[in-house]
Amino acid sequence: SVGAAPHIRYNLWNMNRACSVCNNHLSGNIAGYRPKLIEKIGQNKVDWLESNHSVARHDIPYLKRIKAVFTKKCRRLEARIQCNAA
């Protein structure tokens, strides 16, 4: 979680969706979330996320790239939702 590891807040491997029940009422449902994350990104990356304790110093260009990536993902999702609604 971001509270436990704020230094990986903007790491793309650590940004994954979760249902609102798991996210809001089950503290992220780590027992159900972790196996799916391993399936998605692999054991090595999950181990790295869990053991990384370095201090993050994000520069402005990096944060702008992250914003661009997620803006694009959001637009794709919105377009898919509109296609399904039509």
Rank of each mutant, 00 (worst) to 15 (best):
S1P: 11
A4R: 15
A4T: 04
A4N: 14
A4G: 14
A4M: 09
A5R: 15
A5D: 10
A5Y: 08
P6L: 02
P6D: 02
H7V: 00
H7Y: 05
H7G: 09
H7R: 07
R9L: 02
R9F: 04
N11W: 11
N11G: 00
L12V: 11
L12C: 06
N14S: 07
M15H: 11
M15S: 10
M15N: 10
M15A: 13
N16V: 12
R17M: 07
R17N: 07
A18N: 09
A18E: 13
S20K: 10
S20T: 11
S20P: 00
V21H: 12
C22A: 12
N23K: 10
L26I: 04
I30M: 08
I30K: 07
I30G: 04
I30H: 12
I30D: 05
A31Q: 14
G32V: 13
G32L: 10
Y33T: 09
R34C: 07
R34A: 15
R34L: 15
R34I: 15
P35N: 05
K36L: 15
K36P: 05
K36F: 02
I38A: 08
E39L: 08
K40I: 10
I41R: 02
I41H: 05
Q43C: 00
Q43E: 12
N44P: 08
K45P: 01
K45C: 01
K45Y: 02
V46R: 00
W48G: 03
L49E: 03
L49R: 04
L49D: 02
L49W: 07
L49F: 05
S51C: 07
S51E: 10
N52V: 01
N52C: 13
H53M: 08
S54V: 03
V55I: 11
R57F: 03
H58A: 06
I60T: 10
P61T: 04
P61R: 05
Y62E: 04
Y62M: 01
Y62L: 03
L63K: 12
L63N: 12
L63Q: 12
R65C: 02
R65V: 02
R65G: 00
R65A: 06
I66T: 13
K67E: 11
K67Q: 14
K67S: 04
V69E: 15
V69K: 12
F70A: 03
T71D: 15
C74R: 14
C74I: 07
R75I: 01
R76N: 09
R76V: 01
R76Y: 10
L77Q: 13
L77K: 09
L77G: 09
L77P: 01
L77A: 14
E78A: 07
E78Q: 14
E78G: 01
A79I: 01
I81P: 03
Q82V: 06
Q82H: 08
C83Y: 11
N84F: 10
A85Q: 12
A85R: 13
A85G: 01
A86E: 13
A86W: 06
